[in-house]
């Protein structure tokens, strides 16, 4: 095996194709990983190819479908447009870190109950995105669908237009949108707005 260059802040190193040139620390689902990678590697590919966490999916690889959504320090991002090296030291939550087969997260239960999927390809991204979205909503963030008088108020109702606008970064080729919105609405109502302060707390 090739030597793994130690990654030093601020050092310049010219990578060759195939070289492992950066070593970064990714904290994924509560477990620290030291990963050596080519700096061209996306966070998505690092998770899937190097850590074997294939629950996060690659749809468009262009930021347009949301299948690759994960949480970085509790905030939803698209892992396909993130270079892994930019997330050195950050806490990443993927679908594997949300619930367990025996004890699914309430949002996962709701997706099953309301048929929030058909083929399931978009589902891990939908669930990670919804967790990030609900944390944003709890923090009082308005959306493009928020009426202006409501934006100034203490709490924005999570209406259907609100859910759809806030989840518009997640496409579902099977068109399970109604079930997805129902599941999110139900899970949000069940946990209430007094729930966890950020998505990662809601997750763990």
């Amino acid at each position: 095996m090739r030597t793994v260059f130690s990654y030093l802040r601020g050092r310049i190193h010219t990578p060759q194709i195939g070289d492992l040139v950066a070593v970064i620390d990714l904290h994924v689902n509560g477990t620290p990983h030291r990963v050596g990678l080519d700096p061209r590697t996306s966070l998505l590919d690092a998770l899937r190819e190097q850590l074997g966490l294939t629950g996060t999916k690659k749809g468009c690889n262009q930021g347009a479908c949301g299948a690759c959504t994960v949480l970085a320090d509790g905030e939803r991002i698209v892992a396909c447009l993130a270079l892994a090296v930019q997330y050195d030291g950050r806490r990443i939550t993927t679908i594997e870190g949300i619930g367990t087969p025996e004890e699914p997260h309430p949002l996962q239960r709701a997706f099953v109950r309301f048929d929030g999927f058909q083929c399931g390809y978009c589902t891990s991204g939908q669930i990670c995105s919804a967790l990030g979205m609900l944390a944003e909503h709890r923090a009082g963030a308005p959306s493009a669908a928020t009426p202006r008088h409501a934006a100034a108020g203490p709490r924005i109702a999570l209406s259907d237009p609100e859910i759809k606008e806030r989840m518009s970064g997640n496409l579902c080729r099977c068109g399970a949108y109604e079930g997805i919105a129902d599941a999110i609405r139900d899970a949000a109502a069940a946990t209430g707005t007094a729930g966890a302060a950020d998505a990662s707390e809601a997750v763990l």
Binding site: G63, G66, T69, E75, V78, A141, A152, G169
Partner: peptide, 27 residues
């Protein structure tokens, strides 16, 4: 979502919220 932006320059808050998606805006 910055309170001063929403209060004094609402057009900026609205333009940002009209762009891209929740995930992309976080990055």
């Amino acid at each position: 979502v910055h309170p001063l932006v929403r209060e004094r320059w609402p057009v900026l808050s609205q333009a940002l919220l009209a762009g891209a998606s929740g995930q992309v805006r976080n990055m």
